[in-house]
Design a protein around this nucleic acid. Sequence first.
DNA 1: GCATGTTTTTATACATGTAAGAAAACTAGC
DNA 2: GCTAGTTTTCTTACATGTATAAAAACATGC
Lengths: 259, 259
Amino acid sequence: MPHASAPQHDAPRDSPDTTPDAAAGTPPAKARGKAGEKSPRSTARKAVGRPPRISRDDVVRAARRIVDDAGVDALTMRRLATDLGTTPMALYHHVRDKEELLVLLLDDYAAGALRPTGLPDDPVERVLAAAAAIHDALAARPWIAQVLTADDLMAASALWYVEQVVDGLTAAGLSPAQAVHGYRAIWYYTAGEILVRATAARRRAADDRPTYREHVFAGLDPAELPRLSGVAADWAELTAQDTYRDGLRALVTGLVAGR
Amino acid sequence: MPHASAPQHDAPRDSPDTTPDAAAGTPPAKARGKAGEKSPRSTARKAVGRPPRISRDDVVRAARRIVDDAGVDALTMRRLATDLGTTPMALYHHVRDKEELLVLLLDDYAAGALRPTGLPDDPVERVLAAAAAIHDALAARPWIAQVLTADDLMAASALWYVEQVVDGLTAAGLSPAQAVHGYRAIWYYTAGEILVRATAARRRAADDRPTYREHVFAGLDPAELPRLSGVAADWAELTAQDTYRDGLRALVTGLVAGR
DNA sequence: GCATGTTTTTATACATGTAAGAAAACTAGC
DNA sequence: GCTAGTTTTCTTACATGTATAAAAACATGC
């Protein structure tokens, strides 16, 4: 297994680069060069090519600083480059595109935010608690919506919670395959909730546009759509309520009841 | 209630513009002018200001043509303007921004795609069928992901299905408020599924990047995360399966069981 | 020292959405 | 006809993500 001083990023599309530590918080391995290598094999060559001035970790850290200080809207590739003392395009050797940078950032946050605290013993309750923990951690950061749809978001730091969900479902009687499918369903529901809510909040903040929904609901025909007409007046209030946990419980209950 | 020849778009932020027909498929009301008005009051004035060369409907129609012919990626404001024989900025008087245009487009598609066909009588089955119909109609068009998070997406054409869901849940014993919350849960789940899947598909198509998940799953510690390690090999296959309906049934079952 | 290969950085350029303001094309009142 | 007011359109300009290609900075083998 080659380790040594693997490149930070799978360059123009060839090196496998399966260093499992590149993602999390490994020190940048800067100050490389003449330091002795522990690894018995792999002859620790002197790293060919132009030496990098910045590492992927530098990029992520600088990005995090910007987001913390000035919000996610201030995070542009140009500003990031300026903060790092390089050019925008130099970043693209450490990060495939901005979206990957955001995923990395999310992972960075998750590493600090999520803490394995005492979870209940009962399987169903454990699933609920783990899912809610993921949800709350993500929902706290609105900019996450831009990244959330990552199919493979659940990386590194959050995996422990995924494990809890899958394990809980298994303990409740589901097969491994069913447990994975159940986890996915929970993930769809969770991601959907956050995304829909975040978008709605963004719209409300950005503008006082008549929400289009009011527009549509105003012209509702009680004869054709009686139920909707009946709740039209309360719709805004009802949908503003946070019912994530209720829905989650319903979903998990249904998953477990289904065998 | 003023009607007459209301402006197509709430201009620089003042006119209420609550014409309930502006959204769907009302004829552009072009060829306006000397035609007699039915409305008894509202003296049908001669429309002040520079006469528009294009209507909002023209914009949506042209956009639809582009999407149908060349895909959603080809839909740029510049191209749209060229097709209509105007300038990009002229579009912004009929559409707030590109996102609103996409919402309008989606509505346009929904009007044609969704057809109220025979739904089951059993409340739960009806909810399932209605939700699945929405899901399938949306999932068929990948570009929808960009718009889907609209909190108020369920406009005009799709409302009939929303009605079916809320009505079915009510018939199954839920209170009106619970039914709305239930609908929302179903919507979160549905939107999340489509979004996550669409994004995953896009990534897979765009590039053969090692999915980052493989990356993470490769370095899994079986001692710490036994369940995930156990299914790691099958993860890709399991998550590729379409289990939307299974999860939906579980959710609805749980919602109904919860009273 | 010098040519070669490799990796990172830089320079340049483009397409996109859209903000800001000027101009055009009308009606209404005089 | 002329001015004022109103609505739509056009011109110009900017910020952004990122493609492309050249240049820089190293190690290696000669």
